[in-house]
């Protein structure tokens, strides 16, 4: 009668309505949903990272599954003795004979393993300086990876994109758009030039830049509203479908129960009584 899907729907409805209940005011339902969200997110990310990256890509390269009939030398046996220790502790993550994910043995992966352990040492104040090594690597690598991308796509690509032909096979509309784009780009850039006082013609150009920026912020606000409404529609669509007979009218039952319980909670809540009649603005 109550399948896993139906139970999942009831939980989804409860959590959705619990989050929405914050619109009334901070309350225990909202707190429950908030804490569940934080806990589940942390657990989910940790588990996901371990099973998709650390286990197959790190351990799978340090201790790959051994082919049948392959004999290990002394050092190899010693190396796999470490693995066997992990195997004793937690066999699902460290199966017998090595991690079979199609990798060959790559001992250079000891470096990320050590850096990872060093980052974890940040929880001990005495050894927290170890974490800097790992952070240095991550920052350096990320900066290196992104520097080229930004220069190529955001600087060169955008400069190329702002160069629009004004003659030849171009429509009048495209020419007008091109001129507006040119004025907006130059005035917007000059607004952020602070080595010269914003007075006279320079101040006027800067002011034009502000208007372009304002239009951009307005568009961003409009898109943000659109995005939030889309998410609301998504939640309401789910609430609507979970309110059907197939889900034993989960939305209606939980909504009714929550309204009654919130009413009782508000009635007995001292803080609520103290602020009664004061509208939230």
């Amino acid at each position: 009668m109550f399948s896993a899907e139906i139970v999942g729907a009831w939980i989804a409805v409860f959590l959705t309505l619990a989050i929405f209940s914050y619109l009334y005011r901070d309350n225990p339902f909202y707190k429950i949903a908030e804490h569940i969200f934080v806990g589940v997110s942390a657990g989910y990310w940790a588990s996901m990272y371990f099973w998709t990256q650390i286990q197959p890509n790190l351990f799978g390269r340090l201790w790959p599954a051994l082919h049948e009939g392959l004999s290990l030398g002394f050092l190899g046996k010693l190396w796999y003795a470490i693995y066997n220790f992990f195997n004793l502790i937690y066999p699902p993550a460290f199966p017998d004979g090595g991690v079979a994910t199609g990798h060959g043995m790559q001992l250079t992966y000891i470096i990320p393993l050590i850096l990872g352990i060093m980052m974890l040492l940040s929880v001990f104040s005495k050894f927290s300086w170890f974490a800097r090594w790992g952070i240095c690597y991550v920052v350096g690598m990320a900066a290196g990876l992104r520097a080229y991308g930004f220069l190529n796509s955001n600087v060169i690509g955008q400069v190329k994109g702002s160069v629009i032909p004004l003659v030849g096979d171009v429509s009048t509309g495209a020419i007008i758009n091109g001129i507006i784009l040119l004025i907006g780009t130059i005035s917007g850039l000059l607004y952020f030039y602070f080595s010269k006082e914003h007075k006279g013609w320079f101040g006027t150009v800067g002011k034009i830049g502000i208007y372009f920026l304002m239009i951009s912020f307005g568009a961003s606000f409009g898109f943000a509203v659109m995005g939030r409404i889309s998410l609301l529609i998504g939640r309401f669509t789910d609430l609507k479908s979970f309110g059907g007979a197939a889900y034993h009218h989960a939305s209606l039952w939980i909504l009714a129960a929550m309204v009654i319980l919130l009413g009782i909670w508000s009635f007995f809540n001292k803080e609520e009584k103290a602020t009664k009649g004061v509208p939230i603005k």
């Binding site: 796509s153 690509g157 955008q158 190329k160 994109g161 702002s162 784009l181 951009s216 568009a219 961003s220 898109f223 943000a224 659109m226 995005g227 889309s230």
Partner: peptide, 17 residues
């Protein structure tokens, strides 16, 4: 993309990227 990202991504579309 999500609505909130449109302004960030639109310049790449306009530039033909």
């Amino acid at each position: 993309v999500t609505s909130i990202q449109v302004n960030e991504v639109m310049p790449y579309v306009d530039a033909g990227q």
